[in-house]
């Protein structure tokens, strides 16, 4: 044990003799007053196992690094629907996000005045999807639907809040 540690312990014992309140209040407020770092031996008894069968249970408890694929079912309690498997034949695809959700978002700006709906991750014939969405949304609207296509980024921007309508449209197409 070093000299510094010895002195600090001596001081502590003196102080504890004076009053019990000092006993539990070791503050290590300065660098010099703090004790030296020591290797702490684990006090719990343990044994090392390299059994792959047991390791499965450890793996199960570890957090997932990659979003897992959903288990295919008839229906899900939340109402969420997976994308259809045979998408190859479709003229366009709205790819799901990595969390398997439909990438349709609402952007509110100009202090709540301007509402734009964004459909992202579109692959294939983006102009056809825009036409179909316009036809679908026009039925419920008095004004003509205004929209903008960004082919490079695969994004359609539509004026107004049509998030749920577009999600319904895409779900009906099993997208």
């Amino acid at each position: 044990m070093s000299l510094r540690c010895y002195f600090s312990q001596l001081l502590r014992s003196r102080l504890s003799a004076h009053s019990n309140t000092y006993k539990n209040s070791v503050r290590h407020a300065t660098y010099k007053a703090s004790p030296f770092a020591e290797d702490i031996e684990p006090t719990v008894k343990y044994e090392v196992s390299k059994n792959p069968e047991e390791w499965k249970y450890v793996e199960r408890a570890l957090p997932l690094t990659i979003v897992p694929q959903p288990i295919r079912k008839e229906s899900y309690p939340s109402g969420w629907k997976p994308q259809t498997e045979d998408v190859k034949k479709l003229p366009y695809l709205v790819q799901r996000t990595k969390n398997h959700m439909i990438p349709v978002y609402l952007q509110i700006s100009q202090r709540g005045v301007r509402r734009h709906t964004f459909v992202r991750k579109i692959q294939g014939d983006i102009n056809l999807l825009e036409q179909e969405l316009k036809e679908f949304l026009q039925k419920e609207s008095f004004q003509p639907i205004r929209s903008q296509v960004n082919e490079l980024t695969g994004i359609i921007r539509i004026n107004g809040d049509h998030v749920n309508a577009i999600k319904y449209f895409l779900e009906k197409k099993n997208l």
């Binding site: 957090p63 997932l64 690094t65 990659i66 979003v67 990595k98």
Partner: peptide, 8 residues
Amino acid sequence: LENLHMND
């Protein structure tokens, strides 16, 4: 690809 499908 792993980073494009990162969970958290």
